[in-house]
């Protein structure tokens, strides 16, 4: 008689073991068949908008946008290589070569324009030279062409020039001093700033 509780306890223990095994077996069912296939989709990356500017008179080549994101200023003449002296009705010439150096995967044509008129500023107060000066522009394919382009190629407004990916174009400037300029302006100087805009077309 006293042995029955012991048998019951053994039975309960076996049952518990069976339940435990059953739970273990259920846990194992999480390892069902599965398959993972990488899509191999890769990475989409954007190009840089890389425009180079090369000034006439060997002033060097620069990226249009500096590393800090600000626009570059490219001189078209320097103290070592100044423009020719300017006389009434005897223009001088300068130019800038604009290169489209993007690494874009597709066609990436840009358009270089001069949407704002040249800003002519006297070097020094009260000289008055700037009011007798004018700037016209024309498109070319090489910086050496600027002095040799036909006179009527130069216009007051620049319609823009298309530059394909990997290509370049030259914008020539013709700087003139009007015949009405007084002789008192001899030896004076002025600075000319021409904002250049480059837009993606396609």
């Amino acid at each position: 008689m006293p042995r029955r509780p012991i048998r019951a306890a053994k039975g309960a223990a076996l049952l518990a073991a069976g339940v435990a095994l059953g739970l273990t077996a259920v846990g194992g069912s999480y390892a069902l068949w599965n398959k993972l296939v990488p899509a191999g989709t890769g990475t989409v990356r954007s190009a840089d908008f890389l425009i180079t500017l090369t000034g006439s008179n060997n002033t060097g080549t620069y990226n249009m946008v500096l590393a800090d994101g600000t626009p570059a200023t490219v001189a078209l003449s320097s103290a070592a290589a100044p423009l020719d002296q300017l006389f009434p009705d005897t223009p001088v010439y300068a130019g800038v070569s604009v290169g489209n150096a993007t690494a874009a995967g597709s066609a990436f044509t840009v358009k270089a324009t001069l949407p704002q008129p040249a800003l002519i500023t006297d070097n020094g107060p009260g000289t008055g030279l700037a009011q007798y000066m004018s700037v016209q522009s024309a498109a070319a394919t090489d910086l050496t062409q600027c002095p040799t382009l036909p006179a009527d190629a130069y216009k007051d407004s620049f319609p823009g020039v298309l530059i394909p990916k990997g290509g370049s174009a030259v914008i020539c400037f013709k700087i003139q001093l009007t015949a009405a300029a007084p002789s008192a302006l001899q030896g004076q100087s002025a600075s000319i700033a021409v904002p250049l805009f480059v837009n993606q077309i396609s």
Binding site: V37, A39, T43, R45, D48, F49
Partner: peptide, 19 residues
């Protein structure tokens, strides 16, 4: 020059079939 030199990485995309 918005979004120059940017990337969008889909390389971790995968398909999974779980029984």
């Amino acid at each position: 020059r918005d979004s120059v030199d940017a990337t969008y990485d889909f390389s971790a995309v995968a398909f999974k079939l779980d029984q």
